[in-house]
Design a protein around this nucleic acid. Structure first.
Lengths: 183, 183, 183, 183
DNA sequence: TATGAATGAGCGTTCATTCAT
DNA sequence: TATGAATGAACGCTCATTCAT
C-alpha cells in the first residue's frame, strides 16, 4: 500500500512491493491474481480501518451537534488528513476513474455512509435549533468540504503554506452554527 | 493533454500522444526533452487558459460581493467542474506529489492568486457589511471548497449520484452571506 | 504422461502433473530428480506396455505370414494408432531430438526389435513363397510405414479427412503379398 | 525458424531468435503480434519454398509413371528429408495438435495437394498398365509413406543406423510397379 | 514419506528514446 | 523540421525447484 500511495498504480513496481513486504516477487501471486486486483484489494482493505477510525468514536450523550461535528473533524484531521491515510484518499481520487470498482467501493462504504450520517446530524441540528440553514441538509457535502480541502492541501501545498486545518474547520463551523463565544 | 488526463502520467503512451497530435513519435522530441518535461509543460500550458477563463470576466461595477462570488462559481462550475478542465485539476491532485514543479506552478498561478483574490473579495464583503464572519478572511479556502468538491464529485461519483453543483454552491453562499430571499 | 502427451515437454507444468496424479508438487521430487528425468522415465515406462501389447499376441501356429502381419497391423491400429498411445509415438517423434536418451531407448526397445521381428517374418514369407520381393527384407521399415502414417494422420488430419487405417494397410499388404481374393 | 526447429515452440526464447536474426528483441514485435503468430507465420512462410521445390520440377514428357514418382522421391529425399526442411516437417508433426492453424495450412497446401497429385499419377499408371493394384488410388498415402519414414528416421535414428532412403524408396516402387531389371 | 508455501531466475512483452534518412 | 524503424532496459508474470513442517 505504501508503494501504491507513493507512486500511484502504474508507476509502482512489484519488485519494490515485494522488497518492502519482505517476500519474493512470486509470493505476491500466491495472494493476488495480478497487479490490478492486488491494488483493488489493498485499497479496500486499507479503507476499512479508516472507516472504523472515523465512526469508531461514538458522540458524547449530551453533546451539542456542533461539538459532535467538531469532534469528528478533529478525528479526521488528526487521523486522516495529516497521516498516510490522507494520501490514501488522494490515491483514490487519482486512480478512481481508472478503477471504477475502487471508486464504487469508496462511494458505498465511505462517501455514501458518511454523508448519510452527516445529514442525520444536520437534521438533528436543525431540529434542535442549532442550525438555521434548512437547505444544508440537502448538501451534507458542504459540512465536510473543508476536510477534503485539508487532505489535498496537506499533500500538495503544505510545503508552500502550512494550513491550520482544525482552525479552518472551526471557522467553517462558525458559518453554520454561528460565531463561537471564545476562540 | 487529453491522453494524460485520461490515463495519468505513467500510463500514457507517447505513441498515443503522437497519434492524437497527428505527428510521428519522433517529432515529440523536437519539442520536448522527454516525457516528464512534456507533461510539466503541457500542464502549465493547459492551466493558463483555465486561469484566463476564471479571472477573465471582470466583476460588474455595481454588483454585490455575493453576486461576484456566485458569478465566479457559476463560471467555474460551467467552465471547469463539468468539463475536461475539471479532470485537469484532478490530474494535478493525482500527480502533484510526484511532480513538485507542477504542484508549485499550480500553487503559484492558481491557488495562491485565487485565494488572494478571494481574500480581497471577502474583505470587501466584510467592509460592506455583507459578510459577518470576520475570520473568513483568514481562510479563503472555505469560500471555494465546494467548488473543489464539485470537481471531484463529477469525476468519481456523478455516476452514482448526480450533484447540482451550482445549487450546492448557492446554499454554501447562504451560510456566508445569509439566506437568500428567493430560491 | 497424459499431460506430457497433451502439451509436450516444455509446455507441461508440474503443477498440472501433480494435480492429475493427486499428489502435492513436492512429492514429485521424491520420485524424480527433475522434470527432465521424470519425462524420460515416464516415457520409458509408458513404452513398455505398448511393446507388450504389440508383441504380446503370439502368431497362430498355422497362420500365413500375411495373416500374421495383418494381425499385427490390426492390433497396432486398434491399440496404438487410434488411442492415446499413438500420441505417445508422436511425442517421441517431437521430443526425440532434444532427448536423445528417449530416442535411443525407443530405437532399442521398439524400432530395432520391431524391425528385427518384421525382417524375420519377411524372410519367412520369402522362404514360404508368399513374398516375391526379396529386397523387402533389406527394408522392413516398408512393411510398417503405413502404420506410422496412420498414427500421424490420426493426430493431425483426421479432422479434415478420416482415414480407414486398417483398409489402407490391407491394400498395402496386397502390394506385398499379391491381391486378396475377397475383401 | 532455425530456433523453432531446433527447440520447438515452447522452448524457443525470443532472445535467441532476435540474436540469430541480428536484431533487438523489440524489433520482433514490429513484424509479429506475438510469439504464437510469429511461429505460425514463419511456418507458413517456410512451407512455401518446400512446396515449390517439390512441385517445381515438371515431369519429363515421355517419362514412365514410375520414373516420375522416382524423380519426385529423389527430389524429396535430397531436398527435404536430408535437410533442415525435413525437420520442418517434424516440427509440424510435433506442434500440429497445439497449432491447429499450422496443421490446417499444412494439410491444405502440402498434404491435400500432394496426395491429389499422387492419386492422379497412380490413375495414370493404372490406365497405362504400369500399376496393377487398382486399390492403390484409394490410398495415395501408401505411395509416399516411405518418404515420411525417411524424414523421421533421419531426425531420430540416423545416428544409430543410417538409412539409404532412396534405395528404400526404389524397393518400395518395386512393390508397386513390379521388379526392376537392374538394381 | 508427503506437503505446499515460498523462492527467484527467466521469459514474453511494452514503450520511452534514438537516429539514419 | 519531420519521420518511424529500431533499440534495449524494465516490467509483470510464470513455474521448476526447495525446504521447513
Amino acid at each position: 500500500m505504501e508503494e501504491f500511495i507513493a507512486r500511484g498504480f502504474a508507476a509502482t513496481r512489484l519488485d519494490d512491493v515485494a522488497k518492502r513486504a519482505g517476500v519474493a516477487k512470486g509470493t505476491i501471486y500466491l495472494h493476488f491474481k495480478d497487479k490490478e486486483s492486488m491494488f483493488e484489494e489493498l485499497i479496500r482493505t486499507a479503507i476499512v480501518p479508516m472507516i472504523n477510525r472515523l465512526w469508531g468514536t461514538p458522540p458524547q450523550p449530551g453533546a451539542s451537534v456542533r461539538d459532535m461535528v467538531e469532534s469528528f473533524a478533529k478525528t479526521f484531521i488528526e487521523e486522516v488528513a495529516t497521516t498516510r491515510r490522507g494520501d490514501l484518499v488522494r490515491l483514490i481520487v487519482a486512480e478512481g476513474p481508472r478503477f471504477p470498482e475502487v471508486a464504487d467501493f469508496y462511494y458505498r462504504e465511505v462517501v455514501s455512509r458518511g454523508l448519510g450520517g452527516m445529514r442525520a446530524l444536520i437534521e438533528l441540528g436543525i431540529a434542535r435549533g442549532e442550525i438555521q440553514h434548512k437547505n444544508l441538509a440537502r448538501f451534507p457535502q458542504l459540512m465536510v468540504a473543508p476536510a477534503l480541502i485539508a487532505v489535498i492541501w496537506q499533500s500538495l501545498f503544505s510545503r508552500h503554506a502550512p494550513l491550520d486545518a482544525l482552525e479552518m474547520f472551526r471557522v467553517h463551523l462558525d458559518l453554520i452554527f454561528g460565531e463561537r463565544r471564545t476562540t
